[in-house]
Amino acid sequence: MESQATASTATPAQTRAIGAGIAPLLGAGDVVLLVGPLGAGKTTLVQGLVAALGGREPVTSPTFTLAHRYPTSPPVTHVDLWRLGHLQEVVDLALEEELDGGGVVIVEWGEAAEPLYGADALVVRLGWGRTDDERTIAVEARGASWISRAAGLSAVAGAGAGTPGEAAVGEG
């Protein structure tokens, strides 16, 4: 089962809105893999997602702390694999315990975790658009648990600016 939706955003606020649009689709035990180069908006998207789940603290990149946990509903564990070099180090993060405990795990540089979680996950690919501020975001649902939720993905795409090149809506 695969299902995909794409969107384009013109501002960080729109990227956050995509994150907020993903939030209501998530439930206990879900993995979101974020794939995209430096500056593509991975952490920005997580900011919108965590805020939409009721997070009140600022979301920052966990590149050097490896993992942040937010007391949202469901609780979010936000990890960043950039500094890791071996798959065993990803295993050692013990994300199974977070997932089994009812949490959601959001993974930046998620391609590194594909061998472990790629079969049943929401994969969000972020890329650069034609202008400095434009980003393309493709959301792909993988695995049995996402079949019933795949219909919600088109709404996620609608949460951003819509079509590429569309005029930016204001920040904030």
Partner: peptide, 21 residues
């Protein structure tokens, strides 16, 4: 003894910094 082994290096071909489309 964790019981979960993952004997593979991460292929970081994607970690080359900023790419443009």
């Amino acid at each position: 003894f964790y019981g979960r082994e993952a004997d593979a290096r991460i292929n970081w071909s994607s970690r080359q910094g900023r790419e443009t489309v």
